[in-house]
């Protein structure tokens, strides 16, 4: 009898774990956002798009000073010129993106036809290739100009990632991204969550670890460390390298699914890119 009770208890525990490992995206997002609400009780939800500066008053002062003369401004201007300049065939980006340039809010999105997550950089390159132009590189270079322009024009839109219910592959992609987020990697054995969830708000050496909530709202980002604007996938590449894991390909399946999951976690937060960071 005792044995049976123990077994039932064990099953219940296992059931509990399974429940959160396979929870619905909405339940995931609630748990995710509640974690930060509990940890940083005085920080309103609208602050999280400001990243680490939502929880680091000292860093925030410097950041606010930087934002008075935004270092990403020239990139926005360059991007606008790119947006308006016709391709060799006479067409422009506008022919691909009728609602453009303020289109950041709909990405990343699930592409049912191709069965994959489409991010904004990927969509931009698809447009270029369809018009006979060379694709842009996904981490550095002029892709950041046009991304800066689109991000700027999209400011104020709300993160609203949709996982369509009519295609189970969309949920599977989300689940893969979620798995990636919580998996320890590299010789140093860190998951994304170790630093940006579990230890958010703590200092690693003299640097404060930023919350994951809001991580996706402000890309592309001008990083003082880079001295230029870079993409989200460039930043994630850096994270993976820091834990001594081999990074994956920018815009490859792993990072696209990760972006799908991570952006979903910030659903409801305002887009405020391009951003400026240390």
């Amino acid at each position: 009898m005792k044995h049976l009770l123990k077994k039932i208890a064990m099953l219940a525990v296992a059931g509990g774990i399974a429940a959160s490992a396979q929870a619905s995206p909405e339940a995931d997002r609630e748990a995710f956002q509640n974690f930060y609400k509990n940890r940083f009780a005085s920080v309103p939800m609208e602050e999280y798009p400001n990243g680490v500066y939502s929880i680091d008053p000292v860093g925030r002062e410097n950041w606010e000073a930087i934002e008075e003369f935004p270092p990403y401004e020239p990139f926005i201007d360059e991007g606008q010129a790119m947006w308006e300049k016709p391709f060799a065939n006479g067409k422009t980006y506008k022919d691909c993106f009728a609602d453009g340039p303020a289109i950041a809010g709909i990405y990343p999105l699930w592409d049912k036809k191709n069965g994959m997550v489409i991010t904004l950089p990927l969509a931009l390159n698809k447009c270029r290739e369809a018009n006979g132009e060379k694709p842009l590189k996904y981490k550095k270079g002029s892709i950041n100009d046009i991304l800066s322009y689109i991000a700027y024009e999209s400011r104020g839109q709300k993160t609203n990632v949709i996982i369509p219910k009519d295609d189970p592959r969309a949920l599977a992609a989300y689940e893969k991204g979620k798995k990636f987020y919580y998996t320890r990697r590299g010789q140093l054995n860190f998951s994304c969550a170790n630093c940006h969830l579990q230890n958010a708000g703590m200092n690693i050496r003299a640097d404060r670890l930023g919350p994951a909530l809001g991580h996706t709202t402000h890309f592309p980002v001008y990083r003082s460390k880079w001295g230029t604007v870079g993409t989200l996938h460039r930043r994630v590449t850096g994270c993976n390298k820091q834990v001594r894991a081999k990074p994956f390909k920018a815009q490859g399946e792993q990072y696209r699914n990760l972006e799908y999951f991570l952006t979903y976690m910030s659903n409801g937060l305002e887009l405020n890119g391009p951003g400026a960071r240390k």
Binding site: I17, A19, S20, A21, A23, A27, A31, F32, N34, F35, E175, K178, K179, Y182, T183, R184, R185, Q187, N189, A193, L197, Q198
Partner: peptide, 23 residues
Amino acid sequence: QGEMGYKQAVAQKDLKMPSYLKY
């Protein structure tokens, strides 16, 4: 290092959500 990386990934084959996330 190749062997350790393999072992590390395989040991986490099934996603286990961290206990600090409350569902």
